[in-house]
Amino acid sequence: MINTLSYVCIGIGLFFWVWGTWPLVGDRSVLFKLHSLSVADTLGSMSIVVGLLLKIPREWPLLLLAIISLAIWNTVLGYVLAYCSSSKETP
């Protein structure tokens, strides 16, 4: 039961990865790509890590740290990248 649930979580994560990464190939603006990447990619990664957590609950501190650092760093990184890439037009 739990094994199936973890595979479902990982499957959802992989789907989110494809969803977030696919817009990278295309002629959209950096901010559009950054949006899809930071939202879908982070959610996908977190879902995969939750799936792993369900699979092996023994290593929960490590995986919890992974989830927290994913959530915090990717959000901050999204802001920093958006600030750095868009401040060029309005000096």
């Binding site: 977030g20 990464t21 990278l24 950096v30 790509k33 950054l34 990447l37 990619d41 990184l77 990248l81 750095c84 890439s85």
Partner: peptide, 9 residues
């Protein structure tokens, strides 16, 4: 910047 995005991904 597109390259940096790909790098972060």
């Amino acid at each position: 910047w597109q390259k940096v995005l790909a790098f972060s991904s």
